[in-house]
Design a protein around this nucleic acid. Structure first.
Length: 467
RNA sequence: GGCGGGGUAGCCAAGUGGUAAGGCCGAGGUCUGCAAAACCUCUAUUCGCGGGUUCGAUUCCCGCCCCCGCCUCCA
């Protein structure tokens, strides 16, 4: 039984999709606003969503996932103006960078990546706003923008558990938005102004652009229909973004929009909030430039439960690297032992389902990884005393395939270059004649080429050096 | 002021009314000509503080302290 902590009810709930066959899962994940490179905090959320999708698939669900690309909003417009580049051209580069980073982190592609500015999406947004205006839930204010009347949606505030009457205006509320009937009313359609330049679409309310919240409601309902199973995002989206999505979508369709809301916590960097001014703001590229691989970043960002604040540190990156090496070594031992022998079907590895069972419990990744490492230690012990059969090793490798399908942390295949191979052969020969000096010299040469040799019972083993 | 998350070994971090998973670091050992980023073993009489309930609490209740987040467009 899979259970998730639903932000809406704040309870741990059994997961059951809407689909009558119980197999199809409709999942909507809030994607990036492509105004610059996404940072590790963004990717922490995308990694959590990836783990979620992969685990559901490991449990035989068919996941249909949508991730939107917000390619028009205040920030994209502002930054494209600063760059002196047309909006589309400006957002294109960051959209591409985003997909590159997603691949670096081995995040599985969604089936749909709708962008807000695509004509069919703009059309859907206009249609929804029109519907809301006709129902008198939305209104056009004096500034020309169209706003959602939050008073017309009885459940507004239910997701964030906010009592709107007790809202204390924070510094971020612009009190000069007198055009709105109610301070909490949010924009569905923003009337064009000079700052928008060439950006704008014609609508029944004049030229303008969509508000951020309506983008997600429109794209989610257009692609997945009026009701979806899981909707995720970072906690910061909980209010007002997701609250607004519920209000808009349910006001239009009359149906419950989302069954399970899952929100990931933010991350800190070295104990502090990540910010450019503190100099602790990192993109995936920054970390790659420092010599970390995608899977190391993936592991470091994934190994803490998504609902807990994660403190990203370089010590943590080292811990991730070391933990992965342990797994690599174990796999290599298993492969050496298994050879080409078929997996023993009668062999059921201990902890074989425990890994997945741990993830069933609201993606308890810590407990799941503990099961993996227990497995590693147990089988290493057996291999130390030659008590693991080849067929059993092969069965463990099969188990690992299932585990790795969820974790995606296996090291990339390393192809030993011919020149390194030659040096290894020469070294093997010098070792056979106990010419240790020559052996050590060759080891140094191989090291210069970026490879690390170690001598085991079964001869030399070579791996790519860590940077 | 309101709502929420968290305080478990040097670091990261699970967990349960019955006596503390796992990872990193560290120590010892094994293997090795040496080396190794390898393997094994060990490493919290104790779970922020003070009360209470209980045969027994880290786990339940009450009070307190500290850290963090959100409260109208930041994953």
């Amino acid at each position: 039984m899979i259970r998730f902590l639903n932000s809406l009810t704040r309870k741990l709930e059994k997961f059951e999709p809407i689909d009558p066959t119980g197999k199809q899962v409709k999942m909507y994940t809030c994607g990036p606003t492509v105004y610059s490179f996404a940072h590790i905090g963004n990717f922490r959320t995308y990694l959590f969503e990836d783990l979620l999708q992969r685990h559901l698939e490991a449990r035989s669900f068919m996941v249909q996932r949508v991730m939107n690309i917000t390619d028009v909003d205040d920030k994209t417009i502002r930054n494209s103006r600063i760059a002196g580049v047309p909006l589309q051209e400006f957002t294109k580069q960051f959209t591409e960078a985003f997909f590159e980073d997603m691949r670096t982190l081995r995040i599985k592609d969604a089936q749909f990546y709708p962008a807000a500015t695509e004509p069919e999406n703009i059309a859907q947004m206009i249609a929804m706003i029109d519907e809301l205006v006709k129902k008198d839930i939305a209104y056009q204010a004096e500034d020309g923008s169209v706003y959602f009347r939050i008073n017309r949606f009885a459940h507004y505030g239910q997701l964030a558990h906010l009592d709107l009457d007790e809202l204390r205006p924070s510094g971020r509320v612009q009190s000069d938005e007198y055009e709105k009937e109610n301070l909490g009313d949010f924009a569905l359609w923003k009337a064009w102004d000079a700052e928008d330049g060439l950006v704008g679409w014609d609508s029944p309310w004049g030229r303008g652009r969509p508000g951020w919240h309506i983008e997600c409601s429109a794209m989610a309902t257009r692609i997945l229909g009026p009701q979806i199973d899981i909707h995720c995002g970072g906690v910061d989206n909980l209010f007002p973004h997701h609250e607004a999505e519920i209000a808009q979508s349910e006001s239009c369709t009359g149906k419950k929009f989302v069954r399970y809301w899952l929100h990931s916590a933010h991350l800190l960097v070295e104990g502090q909030k990540m910010s450019k001014s503190l100099g602790n703001f990192y993109t995936i590229r920054d970390l790659v430039a420092r010599g970390f691989t995608g899977r190391e970043i993936r592991y470091a960002l994934l190994c803490v439960n998504y609902r807990l604040q994660l403190n990203f540190t370089f010590d943590g990156m080292t811990q991730a690297r070391q933990s992965l090496l342990r797994i690599d070594e174990w796999l290599q031992r298993l492969r050496d032992l298994a050879g080409n022998v078929a997996a023993d079907p009668a062999f059921a590895p201990a902890h074989s389902d425990a890994f997945f069972a741990a993830l069933d419990d609201d993606l308890n990744i810590s407990a799941a990884l503990a099961e993996l490492f227990e497995q590693i230690r147990a089988t290493n012990r057996l291999m130390d005393s030659n008590q693991l059969e080849s067929g059993e090793a092969a069965a463990l490798l099969q188990w690992w395939q299932r585990v790795n399908q969820v974790l995606q942390i296996q090291s990339d295949e390393e192809v030993v270059p011919p020149e390194v191979q030659q040096l290894l052969e020469a070294r093997a020969a010098s070792r056979a004649s106990k010419d240790w000096q020559r052996s050590d010299a060759l080891r140094a040469k191989i090291s210069e080429l970026g490879w690390f040799v170690k001598d085991t019972r079964d001869g030399q083993k070579v791996t790519k050096s860590i940077k």
